[in-house]
């Protein structure tokens, strides 16, 4: 009955992503992020969004940093983002562990806990190193972590709902912990007009500690500070390439 889907894959699910996260306050996040980047790197002119998803942050940040680019692992997300971002902002299919855009940026960001998909610290270290490799000297890396082991609520089920003019969606997220991974087992029910689609996505992410995030920055040659004053999320790690 429930179609299994790889996380963020499939056109219908990808198209639902904006609706699922419609309550996220993108305007406040983008203003905060811009401030963080400008503070750590006053002359920042270019920006790369790693795991850019459907490009909501990227489209808005491209107004501040016109020399912008995005990378995402999901083909469906890359095409959604490409439609949304301003002309001249390339969105490339790639894995955060081994992408190579052949150039460097004043700022690299990776938001919304996407680094959690690295699951284990060696992969986290690789991803942070790849991001650092795309930074100009003195460039700024901003990573929004996923949950830490003590902030993820296991054995909890969370209903999430959203609706707009033509669509409605319900998502039941059932959370559990397996070893050092946090699992979000999601059942989406989406109505486009009167057509109802059902999808199940299982997201398995690494519950990295604060020390592990910091160590990955240090190993990539970045200084690291934690900003816990970011709106509505678990803070941000901000690093500057030495």
């Amino acid at each position: 009955m429930y179609a299994e889907s790889a996380p963020y894959d499939g056109d219908v699910l990808a198209a639902s992503y904006d609706l699922i996260f419609s309550r996220r306050d993108y305007t406040a996040e983008i203003a905060f992020l811009t401030g963080v980047i400008r503070e750590a790197g006053p002359g920042t002119a270019s920006l790369l969004d790693v795991a850019c998803g459907p490009g909501r942050h990227l489209a808005a940040l491209a107004e501040e940093f016109p020399d912008a680019a995005g990378v995402d692992l999901s083909e469906a997300m890359v095409s959604l983002a490409a439609e949304r971002v301003p002309e001249g902002v390339p969105v490339t299919l790639g894995d955060m562990r081994d992408f190579d855009l052949g150039r460097r940026f004043g700022a690299v960001i990776c938001l919304f806990g996407s680094v959690g998909y690295m699951r284990e610290t060696p992969a986290l270290d690789e991803a942070v190193a790849r991001m650092a490799a795309h930074l100009e000297p003195g460039g700024v890396l901003v990573v929004e972590p996923w949950h830490h082991p003590d902030t993820f609520e296991a054995d909890r089920a969370i209903p999430v709902i959203a609706r707009d003019d033509g669509r409605a969606i319900t998502t039941l997220i059932v959370q559990r912990v397996e070893g050092r991974h946090g699992i979000m087992d999601m059942r989406h029910t989406v109505a486009f007009g009167t057509d109802v689609h059902t999808f199940r996505e299982v997201h398995e992410l690494g519950l990295f500690t604060d020390a592990e995030y910091r160590a990955s920055f240090e190993a990539a040659g970045l200084s690291v500070t934690h900003r816990d004053d970011a709106p509505g999320r678990p803070g941000l790690y901000v690093g500057v390439l030495r």
């Binding site: 209903p159 709902i161 609706r163 319900t170 998502t171 039941l172 059942r187 989406v190 009167t194």
Partner: peptide
């Protein structure tokens, strides 16, 4: 016709979503 409502409830250890589509 074609009215869509998304609802969700949680109570203790139970949680529920309902997507309603009218005809």
């Amino acid at each position: 016709d074609g009215y869509r409502v998304a609802d969700g409830w949680a109570d203790g250890g139970r949680a529920l979503t309902r997507l309603s589509v009218s005809e």
